[in-house]
Amino acid sequence: MISTDELELLLTDLLDWYGYDFSHYSRASLTRRVDRLWNLGKFPSFAELRYQIRSDANYAERFIEGITVNVTEMFRDPSFYLALRNEVLPTLTAKPFIRIWHAGCSTGEEVYSMAILLHETGLLHKSLLYATDLNPEVLDRARRGIFSMTPLRQYAESYRLAGGTRDFSDYYTAHYGYAKFSDDFAEKMIFSTHNLVSDSSFNEFDLILCRNVLIYFDKLLQEHVLTLFDRSMGPLGYLALGSKETLKFSSLQPRYKQLNSEKIWRKIG
């Protein structure tokens, strides 16, 4: 198992050599993930793991992807998507153009879920979904719109619980264990790398989704990222967080009003 000091050395290397700053990431989670990669790579000692990262840029890229959590699913927490469908999207219908930012989108399952909601509420044609992540590799996968069939039955059930009334399978074509989602969705998406730690605001949005990303950050970085979202938020825009994340205790709280029960806040001031 990696020691506290060894972990700090690795994090310093990743910043010095590759420009990725993990210094404000939660250590408990990083420790587990580094241990996993250490075992997978069968490195006999910490020195060898460290050398591999410093000397092999390809390995370093995979290592960075491996220590960040890229788990995601379609329509996760159906009641959240139901609130988007029934309470958030109807207030955006009058807009000539809708901009949405998925920050930390990973392999894109949430972006496609959102596109399906927009399609069904008749808003997709005037929407643009910006989807960003730290890892170029997961973005490549998101761009293709191809997902494993295995969890799709569960996604279809979540879709139904999220107020979906159509046949979920109409949205994709199945092929050798994979599902390819319609290109009509991908046309409305822009995928790009963006590091919440070091990159700045790049547009003004009506809705920003960043779910289960802040849990990996310390309080300082959480505040930094929330301020970045605030600066990227149009008037009366919405901010959506994961089910255990909150604006409480942040400097944004007084200017944002939470929707009834979901982790969705609207900018009011």
Binding site: A28, V69, I215, Y216
Partner: peptide, 12 residues
Amino acid sequence: IETDFTFSLDDS
């Protein structure tokens, strides 16, 4: 659990 005795959540 973090070294400063706080809880962390992880959805890996």
